Amino acid sequence: MSKKKKSVVKPGQKLIAQNKQARRLFDLSEFMEAGLVLQGCEVKSLRIGRVNFKDGYVRFSNGEAWLVGVHISPYENTGVLAQPDPERPRKLLLHSREITAFQAKAEQKGLSVVPTKMYFSAGRVKVQIALGKGKNVRSKRDDLKARDIARDTARQLAAYK
């Protein structure tokens, strides 16, 4: 009998996309949920799941947080003139105290703020952002080695049952 997978999102939320590269490239510590300022055609494109986190990060300027480098593909049924730039910076909706706290931690400790997943919550688009410390090549190899060892031991335990 197969095991049920753990739910990635809470009940009442619909996952749009997850940034798998963030877990591979960064050690993630603090997570926070933020709203996102979007146009209507971008929301329709997100409902289809057409988003790419490839080089996404959060930039702070003038007391505001901006999501930069996330590609939301244009919606096909939108007129050419109404389509926004797919790579445009998008404003994150956070309280000012949350912005200053994340900005201070990112500047002091040399951390990056990266988006980890995007989902719908009560009809609104939300982005989960996290503080991340970049991994070096050695720590990436150690993670791969630990995963391989865990997989091998699980196979051996399954063989003895």
Score class of each variant (00 low, 15 high):
S29P: 00
K145V: 15
L93S: 14
P89D: 14
E30I: 07
T78H: 05
Q156I: 11
Q108V: 15
D143Q: 08
D148A: 13
V51P: 00
N62W: 00
Q156P: 00
Y160V: 11
V125N: 01
K161F: 04
V68K: 01
S2M: 11
H71M: 10
M32H: 11
D152V: 11
A34W: 05
K145H: 08
V9G: 09
S7C: 03
E64K: 12
R124T: 10
G56M: 02
P86N: 04
A154I: 02
F102M: 15
E42K: 03
T100S: 15
K20I: 13
Q103T: 03
D55C: 08
K145I: 15
L92F: 06
I129D: 01
I48R: 02
K5W: 10
L36A: 02
P84T: 06
R50F: 00
L36Q: 01
A130W: 05
L25Q: 14
Q83T: 14
K117Y: 04
R151E: 10
G134L: 13
K135F: 05
L46K: 00
D85M: 11
S29N: 12
L81V: 10
V80E: 15
N77T: 09
G132K: 00
I129K: 06
G132S: 06
F60A: 02
K135N: 05
L131R: 04
S29M: 03
L93N: 11
V80F: 12
Q156T: 02
L157H: 01
L46Y: 01
S96T: 15
E87C: 08
L28H: 13
V114Q: 03
S96R: 15
S2L: 07
G132P: 05
Q103L: 04
V58S: 02
A146P: 02
L131S: 06
E64N: 10
G40R: 03
Y57H: 14
Q21G: 03
P11S: 15
L131Q: 11
G35R: 05
P11T: 10
S73D: 09
E64S: 14
K145Q: 12
L94A: 12
K133D: 09
L38T: 10
V43I: 13
K117L: 12
A22Q: 06
V43W: 01
S2Y: 12
K117E: 09
R90P: 04
A158P: 00
A154C: 05
G79A: 10
K126Y: 02
K3N: 06
A65Y: 01
N136F: 13
G132D: 05
Y57L: 08
I129E: 04
V114G: 01
E33N: 14
G12H: 10
I16R: 08
A122L: 08
K4R: 13
I48A: 02
V127H: 01
